[in-house]
Design a protein around this nucleic acid. Structure first.
Lengths: 214, 214
DNA sequence: CGGTTAACTAACATGTTAGTTAGTATGTAC
DNA sequence: GTACATACTAACTAACATGTTAGTTAACCG
């Protein structure tokens, strides 16, 4: 048997903290606050459970920090986006592309938000995060209706939700959908995800636009 | 203090079993297999935890029975649906209406499926359930493309997923979306849900259809 | 080097959860 | 009414989860 010298890994507080946060984010996105196991986080972060309590008070505190980190990332994404730019279809396409592009990185956000609503009645999240996504879409839809480029029968509230459904469902259901792509291990790989984004935008733009020339 | 005679409730094995199954379904839809608490199921079913083990072997067995019951309900819904009926837009509208109408009753199915994929890698579900939903949509989309009534740029796989996203997201996110409807306690109430269904179908049909007359 | 601080670990204490068991109450058949 | 089967409960156990603590090791600085 080969001699294996046990090398203790380098100490790096910042890295360990980040690894724990990353692992916690994944674990919370898998099972929510209550279902998440600190043991599994520790394994994923390659440290002991005690380290979680050394750097973070409790599972709940850690959860709140994970949410905050995720939300502050999200807040930057569409910051300063001008909903009145260009034509309504162009504005809508750009906004959705920004949101979806970010979601490939920030892929745990939709699931954690979903869990948060279902399991904790939204106790820990800030309303503003959801509004930041739906309000611009609703506003663009309203502008488009007013300008006659979007269909007048559209209910902008329901439609903004249905649009987000088309945009988010793919990422959220990645585990269930993988087998439909011949068992591709990660359907968020760039090539496939690009197709998803294009197809979603195509469906949505055609879905809201007036076919008659204005 | 008023005298309160304690009346023991009537014994009814079948009812108790059903109440447990119903409670379990809700609880599994909230937290998944691992996160679900049998204590919470017992409270919801108005019985003791021991009753769960009296009628059902274990939490896992109960979970499998809940899945089976849900799937067999789902299987009936679109049974015998002829994807070649009428025109492709009509067929698509009818199919989606059937699916969405059922989903107001069978409202836990999408969440349980999602959890199942995320948390258990689909260990307990049968592939056939997902196929039963996506395949008809894909087939109708393909027929529509062939007949020239649906846009040729459509990727039927991605689009069927995006369509289901628009259809399912509303029900799945009911907790997160409630505040957008002035905090309506249940956005699956018939009036609001009917609007959702109409708006989703409108978006989808316009989204896939060729604007040019064929 | 030697001493101090901070990162980390192992073992423990405490609380929670699934599952069991021994016994009680209720409806039913004779 | 009494005997019996079955629906049900309370009180338990074993396993597991979170959080704590006392001690160990690595890095850094004089």
């Amino acid at each position: 048997m080969a001699k294996t010298k046990i090398v203790s890994k380098q100490r790096d507080a910042e890295l360990t903290k980040k690894l724990i946060l990353d692992a916690a984010e994944c674990e919370f996105a898998r099972r929510g606050l209550l279902g998440a196991r600190t043991e599994d986080m520790a394994i994923a972060a390659d440290c002991t459970r005690a380290m979680i309590h050394y750097y973070f008070d409790s599972k709940e505190t850690l959860y709140q920090l994970v949410l905050e980190r995720m939300f502050s990332e999200q807040a930057k994404v569409a910051q300063g986006f001008d909903i009145n730019q260009a034509t309504p279809p162009e504005a809508l396409e750009r906004f959705l592309r920004i949101i979806m592009t970010d979601l490939r990185e920030n892929r745990n956000l939709p699931l954690i938000m979903l869990f948060e609503g279902i399991q904790n009645e939204g106790k820990y999240y800030k309303q503003i995060v959801i509004s930041a996504i739906y309000e611009p879409i609703q506003a663009i839809l309203e502008r488009g209706k007013k300008e006659g480029v979007f269909r007048s029968e559209i209910n902008s509230l329901h439609t903004s939700i249905n649009i987000m459904g088309a945009c988010l469902f793919y990422t959220m259901s990645r585990n269930n959908l993988a087998h439909m792509f011949d068992g591709t291990p990660d359907i968020l790989n760039k090539d496939l995800y690009d197709v998803h984004v294009d197809q979603a935008i195509q469906l949505i733009l055609a879905g809201v636009s007036n076919s008659l020339p204005s």
